[in-house]
Amino acid sequence: MIGITFDWKVFFDYLLPPDRLTRSALYLTLGISIVAQFFGVVFGLVSALMQRSKYRVLRFASGVYVWFFRGTPVIVQIFFIYFGANLFLGYDLFPRTLHLLFISIDGAVLAGAVALSINEGAYMSEIVRAGITAVDGGQMEAAKTVGLTQSQAMRRIVLPQAARVIMPPLGNEFNNMLKTTSLLAFISVRELFQDAEIRYSSSFKPVEYFSGVAVLYLFLTTLWSFVQRAIERKFSESDRDATVEGPGWTRRNFGRLVGGH
């Protein structure tokens, strides 16, 4: 026998139940993931639409954006945005604590969320583009023949249909996002991984804490997989219940997010 024992007490004390600090780390991981994914979708949508623009400048800008942020490691981008702003702008863009009206945000948290959003936008750009391309060209043509403008047709006809193609890879991206936030440990954001690391460094129980934190990540990703399945089921239901009277397909699935009445 090698003299390594797994200290189950440390493991269970850490997880059952997590203390206040670990809970807030969990919320931070979840919060940053949701915010970064949301802005990632927004940036991706804008970038994908720019790619379809008739103006070469916009197409080019979008191309460079996707090329750069998909082509460099996200950890480099995080460091670059957190520390680099200071270097280029001559002042600290992300000070220790940011006071925005009534709320205070840790500068590293904000920088991290910004970096992840921008990075995610580059991936979402490709996903949205593929979704738009998947919608039959006749849909846009039909919209044009009744006099809808390009942007009306995009918003009302093409994007709602592209959304269902985008949804599965988007779910995948969010799963990734939940785990990628762990990189923010490198800029001292106390999310789940940083929390585990702090506990390990004061106890020298790496295996207990890192297997514990794996369980916490699994908890988040599993929870998400249920949510994702529910969302996708709702999509297919709208096909099955196509004859049922009620709010429109888009509205049932997206509320006011995309083109409701």
């Binding site: 039959d136 006749g138 849909q139 043509e141 039909a142 919209a143 044009k144 023949t145 009744v146 006099g147 006809i157 709602p160 249909q161 429109g248 397909w249 888009t250």
Partner: peptide
């Protein structure tokens, strides 16, 4: 275009609308 009706071979109705 809004004053010119066009009917397609493959209908091109919008499937997400009644």
């Amino acid at each position: 275009r809004s004053e010119i009706g066009f009917v397609f071979q493959r209908f091109n109705l919008w499937p997400h609308m009644t």
